[in-house]
Amino acid sequence: VTLEMLTLARGLGTPSAVVLGGPGAAEALSAKLGEYGAAKIYAAESEEIDGYLVSPKATVLAELVARVQPAAVLLASAQEGKEIAARLAVKLDNGILTDVVALDADGTATQVVFAGSTIVKSKVTRGLPLVTVRPNSITPEPAAATPAVEQLTVSVPAADKLARVVNRVAEQKGSRPELTEASVVVSGGRGVGNADNFKFVEELADLLGGAVGASRAAVDSGYYPHQFQVGQTGKTVSPQLYIALGISGAIQHRAGMQTSKTIVAVNKDGEAPIFELADFGVVGDLFKVVPQTAEEIRKRR
């Protein structure tokens, strides 16, 4: 989403990138940031900055914003980006818009709300446009620049040390692509029946080089881990191809996948609402349809 933000920012002025992280964080990113038009990189690097929950980062940003008076501030619309933006808004007594998918030169933002059913145009009316940008909203466009790097001095005041990160646990990632970035997502719902049967979903995903997703009912029933949930309280995905297996298509599930380019559904209930948005639907038993699909794909290879 960083490259998307740089692309959006170029519509408002000359973008600078701010890198908040451990020592060396900016160095590793500068080439890529330059490729997408960052004229300047502010590097706030410290051993401590990642040791506490977001507050130190908000403090650094607030000082920087006060000093350089930018035309706008863009952050990623994910948990951490929204949290930093929240504190920044209070520190600067500034408006904030979240889940922004487009930003005009005059600061007018487009937000998609209510499970994707409503499009809103909005504007920050106090302070500068402070927005968080939803990933996969625009296509990043390169525009080469040679960024100058400015190191910021970071000191973490006691007031920013209230919430201490005691452990970060990386969970093993398989070989499948990241759910929110995958160009193909195959999801299973309650209709998959049990955890073991998710192998049918995984097999089809692997054949198509895709990621695996799940409905909340499947997650709540323990068929698949929560981090793969698609929908209002899970991930929002927007792949080229979304395949829903044994998913009824509740509004809250649709909220997370209805901007997918092409949607395919397999469900034994012909009246299931998922068919209302499917480009191609098969009314049938997924345990018959999916193996045949897999077989047929293999045959065509």
Binding site: G270, L277, A278, F280, G281, V282, G284, K288, V289, E295
Partner: peptide
């Protein structure tokens, strides 16, 4: 979104 094609599986759905 408008819906597209819907077929019923009669042995060849896959």
């Amino acid at each position: 979104r408008s819906s597209g094609t819907k077929v019923t599986d009669e042995g060849a759905g896959g």
